[in-house]
């Protein structure tokens, strides 16, 4: 079987399974989130009511969109404070068998914002930085709550289309409780067990030491009497050669974090190498399960949306648009990686795929996954807001690296993160019908709601906030010494590293290009601010649009209403998404991966 067939089969297998699950899971999501009497609510109902009683919440009391937004913001701030405190205080807290030190203030700030915003950007190395308590009570808890927050925002926007002359959009506390209790928790338990069956570890043991067969010689950093690293006149670490046969094997409660990391489209790995680490993603099957888990809820939400608005064709139309964009870009990544580096052939190196070798570009990829599964994972993790990686994106070919960048820059809506994907594509749908309305001279409407000036102003805030955060952040990174200091490659590739970091932070993805030294005060602060603004400003705009639509009358469908479930609308939607993405980012992309691609193929 050739490599292209392998890639196509893998993609069809995973996407086919996910789409087959979309209908039953989407129906389940719609039922539990709308509070219908289901099997799950009969089992979990007493616990749900107990949570409301303990928190003093009246589930029947709904909120205006602004009250909903403030509840969401304050709740997330409190979450950030807990994650920040756990990191700073971990030397004095339990479940720290390695006696890891407290995390620095700037890194704690960055990580706290990263995990409450569903970004899960990691400037640190998990196994040498975070205690088990911080991983479980801080990071994993936020993996659930940030995904539930995204789903809650999507529900408000969907209710905007359903409700008629209403000033209330739902109850934030009810929405996040139901999302966590009935959706994220049960699915995570099932996936954690499946991953554990493949070899993903789950324990609270201290780290193990293994004796290697071969001796390893390495440069050991020298330290002074206080244990601080010694540096020479140029600021480089002073090292001495050392030899060892001891290898430390990190342990931890990985499976329970790994499952919600994928299902909640969070992406923050227990270990530094993320899903490239054999304890996080040991086998071909675990890799397939992880890719499927990333897609599962976002695709199911398209069906849930269609069901909630009373016309499932509306949901299928959004899903088709997502699939078309994803398929084209994922295939581009695969072709680029399988083609490999043209300079290898010039130097007499055979990089063709044969029965004896994978060929193409294997740098930065795990041999147990190969090119097809690595390219598909890279596309899946950036088409959603996941950000987990099973290979190093920095080592991809220029156009291979272009794909994850562009998928994030499109707004992560193919199919996007939990909740974020559906509300982002709905915003583009609103923009699409507005553009179509301008072309044919009719008042634009979508799902029975008129789209007017207020919605368009709010949609503009939604769509323009992230590009502003990304492009201004990248510009500051490029021109300041603090930004330049983290770059490990000169020229176009170095520019891509900075652009990728701010794209990942601003779009709440969290994957890294891996060539950037980001655990510095500059990047911890800059990316932290980018993650917060890129998450919560669009959320506020989406909630406001939900509130605005809910307050409007539903107008009946007439012969003059543009159908929003057919090929014409799907084409319009894809065109709108591409147009906005291209207009925002082409100049920046031209300076990074595009120029690098042309330089490479000119032999430079």
């Amino acid at each position: 079987m050739d490599a292209t067939t392998k890639f196509a089969l893998l993609a069809v297998l995973i996407l086919g399974a996910v789409i087959a699950c979309a209908r039953p899971l989407g129906k389940y999501i719609a039922d539990v989130m709308e509070g219908r009497n289901t099997f799950a609510s009969r089992i979990g109902g007493p616990l749900e009511r107990l949570i409301y009683r303990l928190c003093g919440t009246d589930p029947s009391r709904e909120m205006t969109w602004s009250h909903y937004a403030i509840a969401l913001l304050v709740f997330n701030l409190l979450g950030a404070l807990v994650v920040y405190g756990l990191q700073r205080l971990q030397p004095w807290l339990p479940l720290n068998p390695q006696h890891l030190a407290g995390v620095s203030a700037d890194s704690s700030f960055n990580t706290a914002v990263a995990f409450v915003t569903n970004t899960d950007w990691q400037g640190y190395s998990g196994e040498s930085t975070m205690s088990y308590l911080t991983q479980m009570a801080g990071l994993t808890v936020q993996n659930y709550l940030s995904a539930a927050t995204g789903l809650a925002v999507a529900l408000v926007l969907i209710r905007g289309f359903i409700r008629h002359c209403a000033d209330r959009v739902g109850n934030f506390w009810v929405d996040i409780t139901r999302a966590s209790l009935y959706l994220l928790l049960p699915l995570s338990i099932v996936l954690a067990l499946a991953l554990a069956s493949q070899g993903v570890i789950q324990n609270l043991d201290s780290y193990k030491t293994a004796t290697t067969i071969e001796k390893l010689t390495f440069d050991n950093p020298k330290t002074d009497a206080d244990g601080s690293p010694l540096k020479d006149d140029k600021g480089n670490a002073v090292t001495e050669p050392a030899t060892t046969q001891a290898q430390t094997l990190p342990m931890g409660p990985v499976a329970s974090q790994e499952s919600i990391k994928e299902l909640g489209t969070n992406g923050g790995g227990f270990f530094n190498a993320n899903s490239a680490h054999p304890y996080e993603n040991p086998t071909t099957l675990s890799n397939v399960l992880e890719i499927a888990a990333i897609f599962l809820i976002p695709f199911a939400l398209t069906y849930a949306f269609g069901r909630m608005v009373g016309d499932s064709r509306q949901g299928w139309a959004l899903m088709v648009a997502m699939l078309v964009l994803f398929a084209v870009l994922a295939a581009t990544a695969f072709v680029s990686e399988q083609t490999g580096n043209p300079l290898f052939a010039q130097n007499g190196v055979d990089s063709q795929a044969t029965s004896m070798q994978s060929g193409g570009n294997m740098e930065g990829k795990e041999t147990r996954f190969g090119i097809a599964a690595s390219a598909l994972f890279a596309a899946a993790t950036t088409a959603t807001s996941c950000g987990a990686v099973n290979g190093m994106h920095d080592s991809m070919m220029p156009m291979g690296g272009f794909v994850p960048l562009f998928l994030m820059q499109l707004g992560e809506l193919t199919p996007g993160g939990v909740g974020t994907g559906i509300y982002t594509i709905l915003l583009f749908a609103i923009l699409g019908v507005f553009i179509a309305g301008l072309m044919i001279g009719r008042t634009p409407e979508y799902l029975g709601k008129k789209i007017e000036a207020r919605e368009m102003k709010l949609a503009s805030i939604f769509i323009l906030t992230t590009p502003m955060v990304v492009l201004v952040g990248t510009a500051i990174g490029v021109v300041t010494l603090g930004g330049q200091a983290g770059v490990s490659n000169p020229g176009a590739h170095g520019f891509s590293e900075i652009l990728y970091a701010f794209t990942s932070a601003g779009n709440n993805n969290g994957s890294a290009f891996a060539g950037l030294s980001a655990n510095t005060e500059f990047y911890n602060l800059g990316l932290g601010i980018a993650m917060w603004l890129g998450r919560f400003w669009p959320i506020v705009a989406a909630l406001a649009i939900g509130g605005s639509l809910a307050s409007k009358k539903r107008i009946p469908v007439t012969e003059g209403t543009m159908p929003t479930h057919g090929p014409l609308f799907i084409t319009l939607l894809i065109g709108t998404i591409l147009l906005i993405g291209v207009l925002n980012y082409v100049p920046a992309l031209a300076l990074g991966p595009v120029v690098e691609h042309f330089m490479l193929f000119q032999g430079r």
Binding site: S66, A69, I70, L73, V74, L77, A80, L81, Y84, R88, S104, A105, D106, S108, F109, A112, V113, R454, K457, L458, I461, L525, G528, I529, W532, L533, F536, W537, V540, A541, A544, G547, S548
Partner: peptide
């Protein structure tokens, strides 16, 4: 250092709540 980063976090929250109130105000003017 903690005070600096916690203040930045608070400022980010206040700026975002400011956006909520600002948008709400536009709604009243409509």
């Amino acid at each position: 250092m903690d005070a600096i980063y916690l203040t930045i976090l608070l400022m980010l929250l206040l700026a975002t709540i400011g956006l909520v109130l600002g948008i709400d105000r536009i709604g009243e003017d409509r």
